[in-house]
Design a protein around this nucleic acid. Sequence first.
DNA 1: CGGATCGTTGATCAACTTCAACGGTCGTGG
DNA 2: CCACGACCGTTGAAGTTGATCAACGATCCG
Lengths: 192, 192
Amino acid sequence: MFNVLLAHIQEKVNLSVGDVDLLKSFFIPKKLRKRQYILQEGDVCKYLMFVEKGLLRMYHVDDKGAEHMIQFAWEGWWMADTYSFLSGDISQYNIDAIEDAELLMITLPNFEAMLLQLPVMERYFRILFQNNIISKERRLINTISYSAEEKYKRLVATHPEMIQRIPQNLIASYLGLTPETLSRIRKKLMQS
Amino acid sequence: MFNVLLAHIQEKVNLSVGDVDLLKSFFIPKKLRKRQYILQEGDVCKYLMFVEKGLLRMYHVDDKGAEHMIQFAWEGWWMADTYSFLSGDISQYNIDAIEDAELLMITLPNFEAMLLQLPVMERYFRILFQNNIISKERRLINTISYSAEEKYKRLVATHPEMIQRIPQNLIASYLGLTPETLSRIRKKLMQS
DNA sequence: CGGATCGTTGATCAACTTCAACGGTCGTGG
DNA sequence: CCACGACCGTTGAAGTTGATCAACGATCCG
């Protein structure tokens, strides 16, 4: 159950055997069915979640009812509305499962206790957040700098796993396009 | 010279008197003239920079030569191409001064030494990066979810300081619009 | 004073969206 | 286990938003 999480942490920092036991004690395991919500707009995001198995999405619904994908997370990724989790304010976002999933969840009090009792985790999360900033920055640049077709081509080039695993209408939303536009782009790229 | 930086750190974590002296020793002060580059595309981002005074911008130039604003930074903000700084790879971005500026700069070896010798700074940067993720996420949502006019209205509502201080053509680029489009939007909003 | 830069305005154009319809597939309940 | 409905990807036609190109006045700075 903790295999993926422990591997992910030990890639970045060192944990002793005692640390591992302590670490595990902070988490709650949870299974999620496809289409099941783990966070809904208007609720507080009570958990920071690590995906051991399966696939989640976080998305925002705008004034007109359209969904906009913020993030996907599968094996080895963290997921949460960071702002809501840390501040305790209600969330503007929804998180649900695209595929059946197994999660390891940690509450804010436990997260803070973990950082105090395992200072090496401060480092782990600092590095994790660093990497997150880098990828968010890249996504932003792609979003504002390029045409629909170029955005899609860049996604295929940099994240082919996403194209494999995630339904096309969600990819469209992730890129800020309509499903129709993405369908047409794919058709055009097939032909050439 | 270190006033703004120390205040910013002590808002988030506690520093002893000895810590403060040690901390200062890691930084290099630097003054920058308006329009002066501190990072150019193709160079490595050698420094993580804290703005004590003045105003910087980071931007990307796309294949067609158009500039896209990634970030602004004034008093109390950090600036760097995080990826290039941490990895040592060359940067795709440019950083220059919009207003004369005074910076405190730290190299990667000094950054790493600082984190080891002042573990409390792991916490500071973890919190800093957390907040950065939250704001990048919001910007991304605004960028993909809303029309040009709504994007501008939201920027005015959430970051009026930016509107005050930053030239209009750079605001347009930050929002992913042309200067002409932003000019027309402002005209329309004045009339209503 | 003169050149460069910036914001503005107008006219045209292209990219992407919207609306509508259709066929295929998947999953669920009878 | 089959049938039906829901959902998804596709295609077409029309509409809209924002980009592009061009020109002009104002301001700033050297």
